[in-house]
Amino acid sequence: MAGTDLYIKPGKFHHQFAADVPAGTAALMAATQRPIARAGLEEKTETAAWKAKPTWAVITTQDLNIPAEVQRYMAKRAHAHSIEVRASHSVAVSQSKTVAGVIEKAARATR
């Protein structure tokens, strides 16, 4: 349905989205989550930036939202510089130093 916002049910959020994040932090994340527009999961893009720009990927092997095999496929297709970490979908919270390191490498490489 057009205009539909999607959320993760708060009672399922910790397990589904942030299993490697402390429970209190995950509860706060669940309560303050921003919706994703359903259309954002279904619409096709006209131009993918990764076709013309360097790309980096953090593949999360414990992700219950996007399977690691799918992440690997997307990273390979984008010719991404990628690393794999044992993390949930919330890797930016659970392993912020690792994610920041990837961002710093990308920034240095694209100056």
Results as ranks from 00 to 15, higher is better:
19 A>C: 04
30 A>S: 11
23 A>T: 09
35 P>E: 02
16 Q>G: 00
34 R>M: 11
13 F>Y: 09
18 A>S: 11
31 A>I: 04
13 F>T: 00
14 H>D: 03
30 A>H: 07
24 G>E: 15
35 P>S: 13
27 A>R: 11
33 Q>W: 09
37 A>E: 12
39 A>D: 15
33 Q>S: 06
29 M>I: 06
28 L>V: 12
44 K>F: 09
35 P>I: 01
18 A>I: 00
35 P>D: 05
36 I>G: 03
26 A>D: 00
21 V>W: 08
47 T>C: 04
21 V>E: 08
21 V>D: 07
15 H>R: 08
22 P>V: 05
25 T>D: 15
43 E>K: 06
41 L>R: 03
30 A>Y: 08
16 Q>D: 07
46 E>D: 14
29 M>L: 15
20 D>M: 03
38 R>D: 06
33 Q>T: 03
40 G>S: 08
20 D>R: 06
37 A>W: 04
23 A>L: 13
42 E>P: 00
23 A>D: 07
45 T>L: 14
27 A>F: 03
35 P>N: 04
49 A>T: 14
23 A>K: 11
24 G>Q: 14
45 T>V: 15
21 V>A: 12
31 A>H: 09
20 D>F: 04
14 H>G: 00
34 R>P: 02
27 A>L: 04
13 F>N: 00
38 R>E: 10
28 L>N: 13
42 E>W: 00
32 T>M: 10
45 T>W: 12
30 A>P: 05
15 H>C: 05
20 D>I: 01
28 L>G: 12
49 A>W: 15
44 K>H: 12
49 A>D: 14
26 A>M: 00
46 E>L: 12
22 P>K: 03
25 T>E: 15
22 P>A: 07
36 I>R: 03
23 A>M: 04
49 A>L: 15
34 R>L: 12
29 M>Q: 13
44 K>N: 12
41 L>M: 09
21 V>L: 10
19 A>E: 05
34 R>W: 09
39 A>Q: 15
43 E>W: 05
29 M>H: 08
36 I>S: 02
13 F>H: 03
24 G>R: 08
35 P>C: 07
26 A>W: 00
32 T>A: 10
15 H>M: 08
39 A>H: 10
31 A>K: 13
33 Q>A: 06
46 E>N: 11
38 R>A: 13
27 A>C: 07
22 P>R: 04
30 A>L: 09
32 T>I: 01
49 A>C: 12
19 A>P: 00
16 Q>N: 02
42 E>Q: 06
36 I>N: 03
37 A>D: 13
45 T>P: 08
